[in-house]
């Protein structure tokens, strides 16, 4: 049996936890305990970090569980027998300049290519002649952080954007 620990980012809404437990038990996971880190939810925009400890037969069952679980919840960390299998990190960035005129879709695509998932994109335009700005929240596997930073660096130089990151 593998001893597993998963850290989820759950919506603070009724039923969110139950939804996330289904794929675990569905793949034969034996849940040991659940901890809601409510005190940490303030900086998480209404999401509650939640840790679930469970046991499962082997790695292939865990892989299948992970695939199903990621459809209903955001997995931030996953480890089996103390070994880290996945560690996600969220980084917010603010782009300042002519964000739309310099092809915002291309900007996002290139960040995706470097390994980022854009979770949130908020644009602010006051006047089409003035610089606009966009705030993007990127989810990424921790190991992709450096490639994403260099992609951002390149984009900022090429498109004359000021990148303000977390």
């Amino acid at each position: 049996m593998l001893k597993c620990r998963v850290l989820l980012r759950l919506k603070d809404a009724p039923g969110a936890l139950v939804e996330s437990l289904k794929p675990i038990s569905g793949h034969g996971g034996n849940i040991q305990n659940i901890t809601h880190l409510r005190e940490n939810s303030e900086g998480e925009g209404g999401f509650v970090p939640t840790i679930i400890n469970f046991e499962i037969s082997d790695l292939s069952a865990l892989e299948a569980l992970k695939a199903d679980l990621s459809k209903v919840a955001q997995i931030r960390e996953l480890s089996a027998d103390g070994k880290k299998l996945l560690k996600k990190k969220s980084v917010s960035i603010l782009l300042l300049g002519h964000v739309m005129d310099t092809d915002a879709k291309n900007t996002l695509d290139r960040l995706m290519d470097a390994g980022a998932d854009a979770r949130n994109f908020t644009l602010s335009i006051s006047d089409s002649k003035k610089p606009s700005c966009a705030l993007i929240t990127l989810d990424m596997d921790e190991k992709n952080f450096d490639p994403i930073l260099s992609a951002l660096d390149k984009l900022s130089k090429e498109k004359g954007l000021l990148v303000i990151r977390e």
């Binding site: 603010l94 602010s124 705030l135």
Partner: peptide, 22 residues
């Protein structure tokens, strides 16, 4: 080194609406 001369009030406002300050 990058200074603050290009930071706009709109950027401050947008960051603020998403829980950040610059």
């Amino acid at each position: 080194v990058t200074g603050i001369t290009k930071v706009t009030a709109e950027a401050m406002e947008l960051a603020n609406s998403q829980g950040f300050v610059i």
